[in-house]
């Protein structure tokens, strides 16, 4: 009896130690994950000299950033390109997802597979035919080309996600609407869309982060004067030698919208990622 109690006390002690060890480990990992953000924030508020000395703070880095990069205009470009692309993705993926899940026709399975298999195509593989094609129809001189490319790249996964979601909605619900007197189109608008708001939120968040953070399309499909903030920052980094603080300031300002969206919609993002996609 005493022995058991003794070992009980020991194991309680061990357990406490283990929890503390675990906690410490998690703090260490958190520091590793957060350090880059701290570094970026810390050095965004320095001048070149302060950066070299790693001492003192100022707003000189920000002044340099705004002098070298049309930050406000590029933030606006990012916003517009994101909004337009996401709008197209949502329209085509909800309609197609609903059709593939609830309005199946002969060959719809094949069409679904065709759309989803476009996921496997990396943009790099087709980038030059794409640029030439869109250039031929004069779409690379405005937002339109990039928006279309983003929409096409986002559609396969969004369609997959929406179709999966709509499959989870009971057929009886759709049939009830049909008997209640709605056509399929109105059933889609009145029943399917309101019910799929969580999935729509997931697609929106996922695509927002993806498009906002993208460099490849922004760099090659947008005219120089309509670049997004991410593309602007990348060109600033590789362009004429600039000091580090403005680059950190630019990193900070370009990352903030995506971080805010992430913090607010974390739940939706997690759901979308686990449905099968990397970044």
């Amino acid at each position: 009896m005493a022995a058991i109690r003794q070992s009980g006390r020991n194991s309680r002690l061990n357990k406490k130690m283990a929890i503390w060890a675990l906690f410490t480990l998690m703090v260490i990992i958190a520091v590793v994950m957060l350090y880059p953000f701290w570094y970026i924030i810390d050095n965004a508020f320095r001048s070149a000299g302060q950066f070299d000395r790693q001492a003192g703070h100022s707003l000189i880095g920000w002044k340099e950033l705004f002098a070298n990069l049309p930050v406000a205009a590029q933030l606006l470009n990012s916003t517009l390109v994101c909004a337009a692309s996401i709008a197209i993705i949502l329209i085509v993926s909800t309609t197609a997802g609903f059709a593939f899940a609830k309005l199946r026709y002969r060959g719809s399975g094949m069409v679904f597979l065709l759309v989803v298999s476009a996921l496997m195509v990396p943009l790099q593989s087709i980038i030059f035919p794409e640029i030439v094609n869109l250039g031929n129809v004069h779409l690379t001189s405005s937002y339109a080309g990039a928006v279309l490319v983003y929409a096409a790249l986002g559609t396969p996964f969004a369609t997959f996600l929406m179709a999966t979601y709509y499959r989870g909605i009971s057929d009886e619900l759709i049939e009830a609407a049909v008997i209640d007197g709605l056509g399929y189109e109105r059933t889609f608008l009145q029943i399917a869309i309101p019910l799929s708001l969580p999935a729509i939120a997931t697609v929106t968040v996922l695509q927002f982060i993806q498009i906002w953070d993208d460099l490849l399309v922004a760099l090659f499909f947008l005219p120089t004067n309509q670049r997004t903030i991410t593309a602007g920052l990348a060109t600033l980094a590789t362009g004429r030698t600039t000091s580090i603080p403005p680059l950190m300031a630019g990193s900070l300002i370009s990352a903030i919208p995506a971080i805010v969206v992430y913090l607010i919609f974390q739940r939706h993002l997690v759901k979308g990622l686990t449905l099968g996609m990397g970044k």
């Binding site: 329209i91 309609t95 609903f98 059709a99 199946r104 002969r106």
Partner: peptide, 25 residues
């Protein structure tokens, strides 16, 4: 009708993907 609705609704996604990914491949 259901079939027609299904084809109609899945067409935009198909067109987008074929035009901007399929053909370039």
């Amino acid at each position: 009708r259901r079939r027609r609705a299904g084809i109609l609704l899945s067409l935009p996604a198909l067109a987008l993907v074929v035009a901007l990914i399929g053909i370039p491949v």
